[in-house]
């Protein structure tokens, strides 16, 4: 970018095109949702740590699964939402800043929860498998997924005009989404073609106890609530920060125009 370039408002979206309402959910719904999320998490802790019986084979370590599985579910849900929102952004008839900001908010949650999934998986793997990390197909795919969307988040932070960034990010999100099954397929082949004794022995997974299944479902419900609540909060933050950035930019441009020595207003030709 050259300094001589006139302020190019055509490339900027301006505050006006931002959604007026920064919330996905009405304030009251959000408050109720926040408290129900907390209650669900407390209930999950109660059932996960004390309510459910220890696993016949894995013992108490299996309790980590009540967090691990829901976290993984949340990550996949978040990335799916990112992809759908990106698609809606790219589709000319539904193109709106709302979808761009929603995709970014959801992807950030997805990355946080993919990281958490990997961490919890390690904490489970150490006592049960005896190792922190195994080159298991699902683990490897999840790790690649983590970096794939980490790259997407970096792309979201690039200094570029908002329209450019939104379009590039939407395309990148869709490419990442298409890549996931390819990665999974290749890693799956890799680990099944060349690994004789797998750590996942089907006989190690006996029929799930009723309370255990309930606790797992409770976990999925609680984490879905966490997702919806945090998505609403994160989306609001995105709208506010975008708004602030636009205003600061407007102010800076106005200052430059005022400083200009020429009597003509610089670079205004609409």
């Amino acid at each position: 970018m050259t300094a001589a370039k006139p302020p190019d408002n055509g490339h900027r979206r301006g505050v006006a095109s931002l959604p007026t309402n920064p919330r996905l959910l009405p304030r009251r719904v959000s408050v109720v949702l926040g408290w129900s999320t907390l209650a669900a998490l407390a209930l999950l802790t109660l059932f996960g740590l004390w309510g459910a019986p220890p696993d016949a084979v894995q013992g108490d370590a299996q309790r980590i699964m009540y967090l691990h599985v829901p976290a993984a579910w949340l990550a996949y849900l978040a990335f799916t939402v990112t992809s759908v929102a990106s698609l809606l952004y790219l589709w000319p008839r539904t193109r709106s800043t709302v979808w761009d900001l929603l995709a970014g908010a959801s992807a950030e949650l997805g990355v946080v929860f993919t990281g958490l999934t990997l961490l919890l998986g390690s904490l489970w793997g150490r006592p049960v498998w005896g190792i922190w990390w195994a080159w298991d197909a699902r683990l490897t795919t999840t790790a690649v997924l983590f970096f794939l969307y980490l790259g997407y988040l970096s792309l979201r932070r690039i200094p570029a005009s908002v329209e450019t960034r939104a379009k590039r990010c939407a395309i990148a999100a869709l490419i990442a989404f298409v890549d996931v099954p390819v990665v999974h397929l290749s890693v799956n082949w890799w680990r099944t073609l060349h690994q004789q004794a797998t750590v996942f022995n089907p006989e190690l997974n006996p029929r799930i106890h009723g309370v255990m299944a309930f606790t797992l479902w409770l976990g999925v419900v609680a984490f879905t609530l966490v997702y919806v609540y945090l998505l609403d909060r994160r989306y609001q933050l995105a709208v506010l920060e975008e708004d602030l950035e636009e205003r600061e930019l407007d102010a800076a441009i106005a200052q430059r125009v005022a400083e200009a020595p020429s009597p003509r207003p610089a670079g205004v030709h609409s």
Binding site: L49, A61, R63, I64, A71, L116, L120, W124
Partner: peptide
């Protein structure tokens, strides 16, 4: 210990 670590990490 692992369970405590998992819950506190989350």
């Amino acid at each position: 210990g692992y369970i405590a670590a998992a819950w506190s990490a989350t």
